[in-house]
Design a protein around this nucleic acid. Structure first.
Lengths: 154, 154
DNA sequence: TTAAATGCAAATCGTTTGCATCTGT
DNA sequence: ACAGATGCAAACGATTTGCATTTAA
């Protein structure tokens, strides 16, 4: 998701760290990188199978773990709009907020310098060294709020 | 968690909405309200049993659901520091960020007007009607960063 | 050559459900 | 009286694990 601003592709990044590259990993990585929406582990598995038909679910999870530990991808909950699964996206230089519409399910991304300022404030005032941030907002998108004012109630 | 700023107790809030009050619900609600740390469903169950020994796990989950739907409590992930469970806290008027230390596990709360400004900006610029927000930050707290500089590395 | 990665199947964790029974209003 | 709440046990979805086998470097 989000136009990739990374200098190196994930594959290169891993090679640079001397991490072993297998066909299965390559498949998962390609899929995450090319994805135009946020994918969960199941979707990642299905799409990776188009490249490497016998890849197993466990391998997908292990690859996700690897990329998470190396901090090359971010894990999202997207307000648990559909169960407890997680979604993944390549880490970009500019962090963004995810806005999840409870009515239509759409996910919008929003970035703002206020978010960057808030992070600096947290580091400075709380003396906290930030490694990951996750800001998710749930509510009604413009269209849904207009169509269905009930979405706004209580 | 967080000094309660609510005008009415949760019990009163429910009574006001004509919601049936049972001993089990009262127990869970008292526990959430008095808690000094963030509790998950298991912890809620254990403590509620001190008041109502035979309360069942399912009832705890159903009560959590009820309070969530009425938007009287917030659900937190706390960066999944310990598995995938959720934590709960009474909704307060002032929203805050949760800072989760990956090394010592401590959770700090942080509130800032920048957060409020960011939320207004989201409503205005994206036309998004905010119902819930969840901002969680993972990293190293001041003490851990000082003790163990490795915590800060890649 | 050999440490690391994979597939498979079974296990785990947190949570949800169906249903018969009980209880608040 | 009866809609709604409970306890129990079984089911669930997402993820993780152990272990024998294969593979990248």
């Amino acid at each position: 998701m989000t136009p990739a601003l990374e200098r190196r592709s994930l594959i290169e990044e891993l090679a640079g760290k001397g991490i072993r590259m297998t066909a299965q990993r390559r498949a998962v990585i390609e899929v995450i990188q090319e994805a135009k929406e946020h994918l969960d582990a199941e979707a990642l598995l299905e799409r990776a199978r188009e490249w490497h038909p016998h890849i197993d679910r466990a391998t997908v999870y292990r690859t996700i773990d690897l990329l998470k530990k190396l901090r090359l991808i971010d894990e999202l909950d997207l307000m648990h709009l559909e169960g407890e699964k997680h979604f993944y996206e390549v880490k970009t230089t500019r962090e963004h907020v995810h806005l999840a519409c409870f009515r239509c399910g759409r996910i919008q991304e929003f970035s703002s310098s206020l978010f960057e300022q808030l992070k600096s404030e947290i580091s400075e005032q709380a003396g906290f060294t930030i490694r990951v941030t996750r800001l998710e907002v749930g509510g009604a998108c413009r269209e849904c709020a207009a169509h269905d004012p009930a979405t706004l109630s209580p």
